[in-house]
Design a protein around this nucleic acid. Structure first.
Lengths: 217, 217, 217, 217
DNA sequence: CATGAATGAGACTTCATTCAT
DNA sequence: AATGAATGAAGTCTCATTCAT
């Protein structure tokens, strides 16, 4: 008997083995991108990492682009799920914005520390992946909307409530994001990084950078 | 009369026209990387941008790698030169470390604002460029040594002199660097960014983040 | 009870469902050839048209060639059967050759008008289908023997009986055949063609072209 | 010195050797299509026939489609040129339409007799060549306009002048065309065909088929 | 100095076919 | 009887590089 579980948007029915193969291929694609960079992540290398023939890949995916785009989606889903699982209470609308910022930094850095290679691969893909005309598939508008704007909103609200000093929410949001993204390289270059210590430093950095003037440390 | 100078380790002599051609090709390679990404920057596209045939390129450069590596070197040289030209006094050993930090941020952001495409290309190249085995040519060790360590040293000295609060010089250095690098994308995505305003915000951010507790802004 | 019949030289037994599947696959292959051309008629497309998996096809047929060859055979059988059913009397040995020619044209054009897509597919297959070395499977000798020679014989006999003028039976046979074959494209390009009118014109054409000089229309 | 002669529509300058290579490749593509059919005419086979590497082909042509389309254009140009060279006077507006028909048949059959393989290849290409979506590139509209309509016009005019009997100009035009096209297969299957005899027969066929009732042979 | 031409490796993809279930 | 899975050959095309002129 063959169990059918997932109906994918392509209309293809997916069995367990199909889902497993797809997952395996996506995982190996992530690994290949991390190991050889976006430009060096050929299907041959993905196949070799997976220990399968190249044909298997094109049997399960319509195109290389489909693999890469699924990889990005998968990693983002995992990240969102991780954030909810570990610190969802800090993202309630009525939570203290400073607690929210701290939680945001901590969950993001923790997730990166746990999965640096995935994150690195996603960064590579979102930077490198282009459509047939050479235009980026994951444009900056995408990051603005999904990543920057929510942070901006957090800062704006905190300022209205008097919890943050007066600064440009946008610039601060961009800065926070860049520091978080940069942690990926730190973890890749130094896998033995003291994550707790690094996180505490980053949290302190942004607490000093944002706190309202009258407040005590 | 034709001036001749040894310009490369290969020992090839270079005339003015040779140097000009090399410079032109490097410039077009930078443009190609910026436009199409590292993976999409083929020699064909570089040649088309330069309005020359592909053969010209391989006549002047031994390999594609040589072009890319020269591009990185050229842009870094320009950046260093720019920093010296505009604010060299701030980097004297006896300058106030807080002034030095401000100057560092301002010169870096100003340079990026003036040449965002070059910088972006260099980032793409340093991330994407690999040797035949897929190993990065511009490893993280290189950035550590050239970029992070000098910043670290600045912070350490400032702390010793009591000008900065007690934080991890390394984490702060990394954070500064990431925020600066991230400005490239800001400029590319929004070329009409208010550079002065953005810079002031970033300077304020790090002044708040680093200043010794008792100090007034 | 399951009826079993030997239907193929391979010796495989075939049940009704087997025969039905084979027929369905052959029909979809014809459709695929008509829609995408010989070169574009892959087993994937046949399977998709049939709403079955590719495996089903290779379960019922030893090779793609077997499908195509069966398609040709099936369509020819149908055509012959159609001719016999509609106008068998005209092909008796003692029928007037001019009536036979008229009947031949009418039955052929009527059959094409009724099944233009099948015929088109068969033409595509007989033209395009090759063995591994690239040699045509349905060579011209096959058409000569099956199609041209009977027509030639009709003309020769008509001339002997004084019913046709003196012309080359072979050239006339080839001409008749080409005009009939060409009607396929007419029907595909203009499905609303006035078949009766077109047929009358063609019949008139060849009556004028063949009739003995002294004869009145 | 390198002579530049032809500026092609792609904007590429063409040298003599470039033009020669392109011509050679087109010729070998025609040969490959004729030998292996449209579906079997791979670039590998074209390259093998030309005695060059596959890369040479893709250096001179942007795509396989470009080769095939150039092949069709080249052969049609040659045919038109041949017709003008041999019998241009018969196509004057005031020439006798019956002479024009005779000339049309004779020039077409003569050209086919001289170049049967080219013509066959063009027929294969126009039938088989599809765009990315599977739609024919050389649709029936193209043939209608370029080939059928001029013939129709010839017949219509001849009827107005009382030189032809009353028949459907369109059906007659289609018939003439099919007989001419069919001659290609005759020549390929029987290269030793008596061309003059075959032509005379075809001319007689259509003279009988078209001539006004009162006229003597 | 410059370039057009050629090459072969390797990219992605399609396909007919085989096989285990 | 059916099918999903896998495979490897072959297809078209891109690319960095080499070479003769």
């Amino acid at each position: 008997m063959v169990m059918r579980t997932i109906i994918r948007s392509t209309g293809r029915k997916a069995t367990f083995t199909e889902a497993a193969r797809r997952a395996q291929i996506v995982e190996c694609a992530i690994e290949a991108v991390c190991e050889f960079g976006y430009a060096g992540a050929s299907l041959s290398r993905v196949a070799k990492l997976a220990g399968i023939s190249k044909g298997v890949i094109t049997y399960h995916f319509a195109s290389k682009a489909e693999i890469l785009e699924e990889a990005v989606a998968v990693v983002y889903e995992r990240g969102a799920e991780f954030a909810l699982r570990t610190r969802s209470e800090a993202f309630d609308d009525d939570a203290d914005p400073r607690d929210a910022l701290r939680a945001y930094l901590e969950t993001n850095l923790a997730y990166i520390a746990a999965h640096p290679r995935e994150i690195n691969a996603v960064v590579e893909i979102t930077r490198g992946h282009r459509d047939a005309d050479g235009r980026p598939v994951f444009g900056s508008a995408w990051e603005e909307r999904e990543v920057i704007e929510p942070l901006e909103e957090l800062f704006r609200e905190g300022q209205e409530r008097g919890r943050f000093r007066d600064f440009s929410p946008r610039v601060m949001a961009v800065a926070v994001r860049r520091v978080i993204d940069g942690f990926t390289f730190q973890m890749l270059a130094h896998p033995d990084t003291d994550v707790a210590g690094f996180t505490a430093e980053v949290v302190a950095l942004f607490e000093h950078a944002t706190r309202a003037g009258s407040e005590s440390p």
